[in-house]
Design a protein around this nucleic acid. Structure first.
Lengths: 162, 162
DNA sequence: TATCATAATGTTATAAAATAACATTTTATT
DNA sequence: AATAAAATGTTATTTTATAACATTATGATA
């Protein structure tokens, strides 16, 4: 079971997460011959600033704040980068929160399951074989042919349980 | 496994679905001493008009059309009824579509899993024990305490596979 | 390297979805 | 009938997302 739950929920050197994510993203884009432009990279870094999902307008605000001299970043700019990053599988959209989060293992074929902490917002991604097959099995009983899945679990992360 | 997949995907006398749903809703509201007012009932019936999820503004439009003499139903009215119906578990919100669908077994304790046909939109609800326990198991590995889940499967219903 | 086509971004405007705030009406209770 | 609480009506606004078109940057080709 692929997961980033350790990092997502516990104290760690997050700069390394960002560096690693950026590195993976660059490799992947090089490989696919698509362009990780400065703006796209900035959006990507903004999303990766934490393990908490960020809404599109939060990204707009963060990027405007981070710019110097302060320059208003506008929604279409951000939405276009989001679209690109989603297409490349570098980020995911959390439907239940209407927000975005970095993918910890882009490129790897995986089935997304998200564990969202209701308290602190920290969100881990898992790729759980068994869950995928349980979905398959459930669908089969209804003669339903699965193409994609949205699985978002809300609860308390280990840190917020105590 | 509780499911309404037969009805959701195949031809049937849908009036009976509506009548039955309304009947259940009335019983349940009587029982809980909450009021299924005419507006709430109208919203409920509008949502139950099909087995396809309906967006809030679709409901606004449908209700405005259905009114005679034509009287503009406004968003807050609909949103308030939606809120009530969600609280009572009479309808569900599909996060991935940002739309609403009637619950086929309100009152019964169940874990929602939705099977959404990408072709025709028909959506069935299942309450699958095994899926719930797979979720639990996946979460446990991350020491995550589950409180609620959003599971929405997209694919092709039996009718749209041929 | 100049030209061109394509891709990406900037900009303005607007569409679409959701809710806040307050007025009015309805309902249940006394 | 009087009252309080609940529900609905109404206006305005906030939040989220995208359309449309102008401009700039990039990569390919002559």
């Amino acid at each position: 079971m692929l997961t980033n739950s350790r990092l997502a929920y516990h104290h760690h050197d997050h700069k390394r997460c960002i560096t690693a994510a950026l590195h993976r993203a660059r490799l992947l884009c090089d490989d696919r011959q698509v362009r990780l432009t400065p703006i796209r990279e900035a959006v990507f870094k903004t999303i990766w600033a934490s393990h908490r999902p960020l809404g599109a307008y939060d990204i707009v605000d963060q990027m405007t704040l981070a710019s110097s001299p302060v320059k208003r970043i506008l929604p279409p700019t951000v939405y276009r980068s989001i679209e690109f990053l989603l297409e490349q599988g570098l980020i995911h959209r959390l439907a239940s929160l209407n927000a975005y989060i970095g993918c910890p293992f882009p490129g790897n074929d995986h089935n997304d399951v998200f564990l969202i902490c209701r308290q602190c917002g920290a969100t881990a991604e898992c790729s759980a074989e068994q869950l995928t097959s349980a979905v398959e099995q459930t669908a089969r009983r209804a003669n339903f042919n699965v193409e994609s899945q949205v699985i978002e679990i809300v609860g308390l992360c280990p840190e917020c349980q105590s």
